[in-house]
Computed example of a mutant assay.
Amino acid sequence: MLHAGLRLGDRYRLDARIGAGGMGEVWRAVDEVLGRVVAVKAMLPGVAD
């Protein structure tokens, strides 16, 4: 389950969920390599199968 503070790929730190739909979630995140705010879209585990 995704949550604020989670790191993805040792690069993206999730800050706040922006939205969600039937297939995934969109999160406000920080790209810690480039030092900038980005949007990260992640598929829900049930859909990825």
Rank of each mutant, 00 (worst) to 15 (best):
M1H: 11
A16R: 10
A48W: 11
R36C: 08
V26N: 04
A29H: 05
R28I: 01
D10W: 07
V30Y: 00
L6V: 07
K41G: 14
D49K: 01
K41A: 13
R28V: 02
A29K: 04
G9E: 09
L8I: 13
L44G: 07
A39Y: 05
R11C: 03
L8Q: 07
A20L: 04
V30N: 06
A16F: 01
V37K: 07
R13K: 14
D10P: 01
L2K: 07
H3W: 06
G46S: 10
V30L: 05
A4N: 05
A4Y: 01
L2P: 08
G19M: 04
K41V: 11
M23L: 10
A42F: 06
G24H: 00
V40R: 00
M1R: 08
G21A: 06
R11N: 03
A20V: 05
G35I: 08
G22C: 03
R36W: 02
G35Q: 02
G22L: 09
L6I: 14
R28A: 15
R17A: 09
V30G: 04
G46H: 15
A16V: 11
L6N: 09
Y12I: 09
V38H: 02
E32G: 14
R11T: 13
R7D: 11
D10G: 13
V37P: 00
V38G: 02
